[in-house]
Simulated scan of single mutants.
Amino acid sequence: MELQVLGCSGGVGDGLRTTTMKLGQEILIDAGTGVGDLTLEQMTDLRHIFLTHSHLDHIASIPLLVDSVFEHLHEPLTIHALDATLDALRTHIFNNVIWPDFAALPHPDRPVLRYQPMQPGESRQVGELQFEMVPVNHVVPGVGYIVRNTRRVFAFSGDTTTNDTFWARLNQLDRLDMLIVEAAFPDRDIDICRRAGHYCPSLLAEDLLKLRHRPEIYISHNKPGDEDEIYDECRRVITTHHLNRLSAGSRFTL
């Protein structure tokens, strides 16, 4: 199973895409602007989207994705997310004002979009992969995911700041091979991080001290223009773990 990073930036610009990760041919974790780099055939193959939260940079491509493959779908595209996240999609996006309600099209009995609520702590099996939803600390209800198969375990923090829930659950695992975690701002913006529910390097360093595992760590979700500053600060203050910079186009074998 291949994990392909289609987008991992905290914004857009030349070569920058927002959070989108593709697992195999059928699964996305979040659906930011990185979806737009897929071919029509690749988009048609998608069957599941696991969302971390409702912010635009993580859901932006869902309306256009569904519209682009509408005529080619023979079974619904399923969105797995918190009730609050699904309610936000229904109320603010697929409301027949911003975009058609594809959960009722072409017919309420045969929709091309299906909402599947998940609760923190719940696990869901898709093929050989198991997805476990873990609560995190963001300004809107948010989660991370632990993804397992018989060989590997990786975790994705989603958008979060200082918390205990994510790290406590990771410590309960027998193994953790890879962790993708956000660091949205440099330390000079620590007040913004606290208000906006994000990590900066010093806040992330404090929370990583809680982690008993030593996975490969990939830093994600940097604000455009601040990438080098954020990564350099992370390497300075995080000395207990091996750090890597995540980039769009990265591929990992699970």
Rank of each mutant, 00 (worst) to 15 (best):
D57M: 10
R235C: 11
R195Q: 14
D191Q: 14
G249V: 13
P106I: 12
P106H: 08
F102H: 07
A248G: 04
I146C: 00
I29G: 04
D101S: 15
P76Q: 12
T78A: 03
I79V: 03
G158E: 02
H80W: 05
L38R: 12
L73M: 06
I27T: 14
T33V: 02
L179G: 08
H72W: 05
Y145M: 13
L176T: 07
H58F: 04
G34S: 07
P141M: 10
Y199S: 04
H58K: 15
H107A: 14
I192F: 02
L77M: 04
D174I: 07
R175L: 02
L46A: 10
H213R: 13
H242D: 06
R90W: 01
E71T: 15
I192R: 15
A88M: 07
H53Y: 03
G158S: 08
I238H: 09
L176N: 06
A205L: 07
P76I: 14
R235Y: 01
I93Q: 05
H74K: 14
V112T: 13
T160M: 09
V35D: 03
D174W: 01
I62A: 13
L129S: 10
D101C: 14
V134F: 00
G127D: 06
I29Y: 02
R236E: 09
D177H: 08
R194L: 10
L65H: 15
R110P: 00
H107G: 11
L6I: 05
F102Q: 03
L129H: 13
N137R: 15
S68I: 10
G127M: 07
G144L: 01
I98N: 07
K223N: 09
V69E: 06
L56G: 09
H80M: 04
Y145A: 12
L209S: 14
I238Y: 02
Y231V: 10
W99Q: 13
V69P: 00
P117Y: 00
F94R: 07
F131R: 12
T33G: 05
T85C: 03
K22D: 03
I49G: 08
I230P: 00
A31I: 08
T39V: 07
T160G: 03
V112K: 10
H138F: 07
S68L: 11
T44E: 04
L38D: 09
Y231T: 14
G142Y: 00
L40W: 06
F252G: 05
L38I: 08
T91D: 04
I98V: 13
H138K: 12
N171M: 03
H242A: 09
I62W: 02
V134Q: 02
T33C: 08
G144F: 00
M43V: 09
R169M: 06
I146A: 03
D109C: 06
G7W: 04
P215W: 03
I59M: 04
G225D: 03
G11L: 01
H58W: 02
L46W: 01
G15H: 02
L28V: 10
G10W: 01
V237I: 08
D187M: 09
V136P: 00
M178S: 04
T18I: 12
A196Q: 09
R214V: 04
